[in-house]
Each structure stands twice: as C-alpha cells, then as structure tokens.
Design a binder for these strands. Structure first.
Lengths: 239, 239
DNA sequence: ATATTTATGTTAAATTAATCACATACGGGG
DNA sequence: CCCCGTATGTGATTAATTTAACATAAATAT
C-alpha cells in the first residue's frame, strides 16, 4: 500500500536503464529531433515501448497523449533525475594504472563530473600532475575533501588499502564512492552511495558466455552420439 | 516444459552472481576451509541460503545433505562453469589511457587471462611495448587473432572507430568482446559474446543514488512544511 | 546400530518485474 | 470548431525471480 506522499521505490533495473535513456535522448537532441514517441525510443533502445513509458512514469508525466515526448524537455528531466543538472567534484584515490587512466579520460567533464585532485601514498608521485590534476598525499585527503565540497571519491587503490581509505571517507562529506577495487564496500553509519565496477566479475561473465556456447556444442555433439545421459539431463553434469 | 536432454536456460541474474561465488570460495580455499554450508555462504555473500542453493542447482548437485559443500570441489566446479579451468588469450585494441591501464594490470593473469598483444593505429605507439606486451598496427589484427587463437578482444578504442573494428572482429575466430566503448555492440551473423563495461552509465547510476537521498531529504522537508502536495504524490514531481 | 542433527535439492508460495491492453487526452486537419 | 488519429498513462495480466518450506539423505553422537 502506498501512503499518500510516500516516495515510490524505484527498482534498480529501472535506474540502470536511465543512463541509456539519457544517452539516447542526448543523441536525438544533437540531431535536432524535436519530439519522440515511446515506440521510436523502443526501436532505438531495444526496450519495449511499454517498458519505456512505465519507466518514465516512475518519475513523472513527461509526455503528452497524441504527441509523444519533447526530446529537449525529457532530456532535461532525466538529467535532473540523474543529478547531472549540477556539476560534481570528484577526487581519485590511488594514482596507479587505472587511477591515471581515469584522470586522463576527458569524457567525464562533458557530463559535469570534474576531477579536481588525486591522492596517493607514493612520495614519488605526490607533487606531480596528471592531466593537469595535482597529486596530493593521502594524509591530506580528509581535510581536502571537506574543504572543497567533493561529492564523489573514485577508489582505485590496491585491495588491501580499501578498508582504511573507506574508513577515512566516512569521516568526510563525500556523498558517493565509485569503487574500482574488487572489495565489496559496506558502510553502516553514514549515507554514502557506493557504485561498484568489478572488472574481474565482468570479465568472468564474458568468459561464462564464451564457455556456454562451447558447452552447448559439446552437449549437442554428445547427445547426437548417444553418449549423453545422466540422471537429471543437466548439460553441466557432463563429465 | 523441459524436454529431456534440453539445456536449462540460466538467467543473467544467476550468471552475474557466479563470480561472487568464485571469489568467495577462492578466499575460503586460501584459508584452508574444507567445507561450507549454504547458510555460511549466505552470511559471507549477503544472498539468502535458499538462493545460493538454487543458483548452484542450475549447474549440478555439488553438495551433500547433512554436510554442505566441499570448498575445493565447488571452487573447481564453478571455475569450470565460468570457463576458467583453461587459460584465455586476449588482445587489447586501442592503446589509449584505458587500454594501457588494462595492459599494465596484473590481476587478469591470476585467473588465466593472458594479454598477448595490443593493437593501435598510432604509428608512434606501434613497435613499442607496454608491460612487455607488443603494440602492433591495427591492419595486422585480423591475421594475428586467427593465427594465435585469440579468445577475447578488449575494445578500448574511441567511439567512432568501434563499428569498423567490430566488423573486422566478426571475420576472426574471436569468441568474446570485452567492450569498454560507450557504443552498444550488436553482432548478428556470428556467435560472439559481448560484455559491456559502460563506465559512464555506472557513474550516472552513482550520481542518481547521491541525488536520490538529497531528493528524499527535500521531499520530507517540504512535506513537513506543508508545501508539498501534487496530484499524484510523486516525489519527483516537486518543482 | 540407532537416533538425532544437519543441510541439501526441490517444490510451492510470494514477490517483483515486464508486457499487454485500453480508456483518455491532446494535436492536427478540414 | 469539431472530428479523427495518435500515443500517453495506467490498471490488468503474464512472466520471471526470489524466498519459504519441507522431504530426504548423509553425518555425527550415543
């Protein structure tokens, strides 16, 4: 039962689709497309028109019957929902390979995400700059973040340092952690959002899919040859 | 209805959890833990014991009633399911920031993923090595991949080059594409698995969550002050 | 040996998500 | 100004996923 005035819980599946909408609408906007229907979006995105309408209705009534959606308006609305109507300040913690790559990546600023500092323990890195972003010692991190209204901390430190860094971050005003370490972060006391980018998980998922088709081939081959019978007819039980 | 001998379709949700099981079991193995119950795994992973049992049963009967699961055996089984009982050959396409960072990352080899070559169009990079991995011109890519039994192509090229590269990859024996470009790849003709790592999407999801809590605060504040009523009681409709 | 405890594999129930279907409202054309 | 076509927003339906429940089999203790 939904109490009056209560916030409707939006499922993660919907939230994960929002960036797709945002991107697609951005492209339409650049092509000077004025209006778009859920059906047209369906073709572009590969979701059903029904799902698109229902997704958007979690956040408001942005369309107009008989007309569709105004591209510019819907783009603005989704930007607001995603919190990218205002810009964000980020710091990168850990100036290793990945940290440096992210610091050099130009794409974030286009969406209002600005990297303003990097932190590292390595004295030979501290004082240097990457893509014109200064590297400071980790000891200064807590003070710096609070002082400069940093929203987002990008975690690219080695696995064993993660816990220590997260502990420090809970003392700051940081609102979100973009976690590239393989560790699953859990923060109890404070309201800090965490988004994990577990690259190894992603690679293993790919490996599964590669393997899956191979298993199927083998499975069918063995079935053809009459080699395959097991108690439950499970493909993966094949020895 | 499941026909005898037919492969049971495993849902993506399950597949995405497999790497978590794999990682967790690896840690238990290193701690010399011999056996583990679904309940213990539940505590470690944060999934329900019921879900864990059901997930694993998609692939076989690995446990024993009254005992639980043998850690080493289950680890091996999951490794097989994920296709990491054998090693994989990878190439990186695009020696930019991200491509170089991935080339320098040591963690892949530990799971049997070996990067054997990098390809780039930039003549000043070709001929050099990154982390002892040679950089070749993109023109040699097709030949090289087929010649060296490359399984996986890691795509870290600029957005506008993606389509061209994917087209070339469909002519090769590559089995999977690990896609770091923002483009959504669709391959019709050939059976190539694609796993996307859309970093911007991930960052926007984080931004949403940061924004979400702020919206809620504002929502409650306005409700307290009696400022908030709209036709549908939707939080996001607040002006 | 036998009883008791434990923890699986699996079926059933509950929950959640996606799709369908349609009444309704708006825009455009005559 | 009115009618017709279009495409939304939403309630109903269906599908998928998660959780619960339990019968059963193995391990352990007596």
């Amino acid at each position: 039962m939904e109490l009056p005035g209560e916030i409707k819980k939006v499922s993660i599946a919907v939230i994960k689709r929002l960036p797709k909408y945002y991107k697609c609408l951005g492209e339409l906007l650049r092509k000077n497309v004025e209006r778009v229907s859920s059906q047209e979006l369906s073709k572009l995105l590969g979701f059903t028109a029904s799902q698109i309408r229902q997704d958007l209705n979690n956040f408001g009534e942005f369309g107009q019957q008989g007309y569709g959606y105004n591209v510019a308006q819907l783009y603005t609305e989704i930007s607001k929902i995603l919190g990218i109507n205002t810009s964000h300040k980020m710091v990168i913690i850990g100036a290793g390979n990945l940290g440096q790559a992210l610091a050099n990546y130009a794409g974030f600023a286009a969406h209002g995400f600005n990297i303003i500092a990097i932190f590292d323990t390595n004295p030979s890195l501290v004082g240097r700059k990457i893509n014109n972003i200064p590297i400071y010692p980790v000891e200064d991190m807590e003070y710096y973040i609070n002082r400069n209204d940093v929203d987002i901390a990008v975690l690219t430190v080695p696995q064993d340092q993660t816990e220590k860094i997260v502990k420090i971050l809970t003392n700051t005003d940081v609102r979100g952690i973009w976690n590239f370490t393989p560790v699953d972060i859990n923060i109890d006391d404070k309201d800090i959002a965490v988004e994990n980018v577990h690259l190894i998980d992603s690679l293993l998922t790919l490996s599964y899919h590669i393997n899956e088709s191979w298993l199927q081939e083998r499975f069918l081959r063995q079935k053809r040859n009459g080699q395959f019978v097991n108690s439950k007819n499970k493909a993966y039980m094949v020895k």
